[in-house]
Design a protein around this nucleic acid. Sequence first.
DNA 1: CTCCAGTGCT
DNA 2: AGCACAGGAG
Length: 347
Amino acid sequence: MSTSDTVPGSNEVSVPEVRVFVRKRKVKTTVEAAEKEVKEEPRKQKLSALPDIEEFAYKKGNGSALIKMVLQASQNLQKMRFFVDSEVASTIRSAGEPPLNWEKVLEGIQKMRSSEDAPVDTMGMSQSACLVAMQATLEERRFAVLVSALLSSQTKDHVTHGAIQHLQQNNLLTADAIDKADETVIKDLIYPVGFYTRKASNMKKIAKICLSKYNGDIPSSLEDLLSLPGIGPKMAHLVMNIAWNNVQGICVDTHVHRICNRLGWVVRPGTKQKTSTPEETREALQLWLPKDEWVPINPLLVGFGQTICTPLRPRCEMCCISELCPSAFKETSPASKQKKSGRNKKL
DNA sequence: CTCCAGTGCT
DNA sequence: AGCACAGGAG
């Protein structure tokens, strides 16, 4: 099962190290308590053997929650660092308490993102979509931001940009104009953004709502934005951020969702399990992440998720925070999941 | 072929 | 929880 012969994080650490596993029952309620315990009996802990550790590491879910501690340090125990897998992380820290080393993790990702030329393909709305509408009134600009958000889901940035340009060239970037325009015309102008038919229809509905309820402007509250057709949590927070400069919450897309879970940064409330939806992730993340990071966390993790921490086969070997990541080297094997045996081909 | 990514509808 | 939407990428 554990296919690789790599112990997570081992190849990144150059100094001599000792890996230690402590059973759940021995772990105190806090990291500090566990740390103290290890300090008091360092010799005993050193007896653990590497193969056993790897065995344990891959055996989650059978009740033996483990805390994996790597004593990385040369002379004294002062430089001891902890590596906690996500299951245990939720056991030993209550919801809302910042995860261990999150600042180091963030710094590491920032470093990778600056050196790596990630084609920050934000799949969200980049500045380009906003710039088009820059020479308009504030209200028009806000409306353009809303439309950009609507169009940008499931769509590459340059495609969204093109669609916005087409709309602008036809003076179709105001609620009034869109309300009067033919839906088919809008559809053709925004093609080929993802789901263009549905989006054209939603644009018409949104324009009508903006006219009738908001005087042609866009809603200024999260709740009202969410009530618009085609605007879900992700885009609603994005629009609040950009159009109103009002940070009501973190804009969580699947990259943020996936990476936060891999890092053990979020857990389902009341459980020790991963969050299962972006909304759960947003709520869990907002419990502890300082508000200064609420906006930058999205582009940071999106770029990271596109280049290194990819959905399939994450590039843990080139990730400089793999030693801090409880999921490092655990999803590298593509042949680890076989579920499709029932149907081969239907004729 | 499978996987992907927000929203909405069952 | 699963699917539709409309395609792109591997």
